[in-house]
């Protein structure tokens, strides 16, 4: 079933939709409901109904005739019948006929809403022809969500591990190794992958942690800049035995005033970027601060190229 659930890993995914709401909208009642429902027939007595409820530890039971839902008996109905000595009455006599039901293809969020509105902890599930096909409770939803959320964690772990494992060692450390990364517009989800990959490589080479951090921050800021401000681009990192050189070239639209863009606090970032915690106008100044040499070439309507280098022995 979980195969049918898209966890929204598309690059355009809006991060501000919480994953739980996303799952609640995508999950259908059929994905969470209990299928083997205990039912009673209209002609069963309330004493028999009570036995079904007691034996199965349930507090309500649907009344079905030829597979179709015709009513429901709740614990309250049983208590009332006990009070009035009506335990030999039939289910048909005492059942609630106007049963609140939910369709099998309805989203879980709608089912929860309906449970809240009618004040029941469970709803019988019916198919298009009004046949009773299951029952859904709050707990069914919670159980499924816990399972799926755990699945998201495992997928994220697997993704990060595969990124780490995919990092090739430099073919020849003396001649250096080159890594290329495509960075897409608005792809916050994959922001930092270039930086993280190069960081791991430098750790293998036992470069000092302070230098690795400067390189990682400069690369991450560069990725973020491409994601926020450009139409997408490419980053290339060349690792030499004694230094790293990074070239980032985007597909435009270019920077109208490069000098202004290099000023701390100057930002043209979108509200979305700010929500993600970026866009404070610190990106380019921070890159400059972290690196040993820095060059930026850009003009309005053209691509932007940033080149920087960091030496290991400083």
């Amino acid at each position: 079933m979980s195969d049918a659930i898209s966890l929204g890993t598309a690059k355009t995914k809006q991060q501000d939709i919480s994953i739980i709401s996303e799952l609640m909208y995508q999950l259908k009642v059929r994905d969470v409901m209990t299928k083997n429902v205990h039912t009673v027939a209209p002609e069963n007595t309330l004493r028999e109904v009570q036995a079904v409820m007691r034996d199965n530890k349930i507090s309500g039971v649907p009344v079905a005739s030829d597979g179709k839902l015709v009513g429901i008996i709740s614990l309250d109905d049983i208590i009332r019948a006990l009070d009035f000595g009506e335990m030999d009455s039939t289910a048909e006599d005492k059942m609630t006929r106007e049963v609140q039901t939910v369709g099998v293809g309805v989203s879980v969020i709608k089912a929860i809403d309906e449970m809240e509105q009618c004040g029941f902890g469970r709803l019988p599930v019916i198919d298009r022809d009004h046949y009773l096909v299951g029952i859904v409770t709050h707990w069914d939803v919670v159980k499924k969500l816990i399972f799926l959320l755990q699945d998201v964690v495992l997928k994220a772990e697997a993704r990060e591990r595969s990124l780490a494992d995919a990092t090739p060692a430099p073919a020849n450390e003396v001649e250096g190794a080159t890594y290329e990364f495509d960075v897409c517009k608005d792809d916050f989800e994959n922001a930092g992958i270039a930086a993280s990959t190069v960081k791991k490589q430098l750790q293998k080479m036992e470069v000092s942690p302070a230098v690795i951090r400067r390189i990682a921050v400069a690369m991450y800021e560069t990725e973020i800049n491409i994601i926020i401000h450009s139409l997408g681009g490419k980053m290339t990192a060349e690792i030499f035995p004694d230094r790293v050189r990074v070239i980032s070239k985007d597909e435009g639209p270019g920077i109208a005033n490069v000098e202004k863009a290099l000023t701390e606090g100057f930002s043209t970032a979108s509200a979305k970027a700010r929500e993600m915690g970026f866009g404070a106008g610190m990106g380019l100044p921070n890159i400059k601060r972290c690196v040993d040499d820095f060059k930026i070439e850009s003009a309005a309507g053209e691509s932007t190229t940033i080149t920087f280098g960091v030496k290991f022995n400083i």
Binding site: I19, A156, S196, R213, V217, Y220
Partner: peptide, 26 residues
């Protein structure tokens, strides 16, 4: 990701915020 790249030793979320599951996996 920022914590990882900065070598931060840990993250504390305030105001009852709970990280997204992807963040936990990462």
């Amino acid at each position: 990701r920022t914590a990882e790249l900065m070598g931060s030793l840990g993250v504390m979320y305030v105001r009852h915020k709970y990280p997204l599951q992807e963040a936990i996996g990462m």
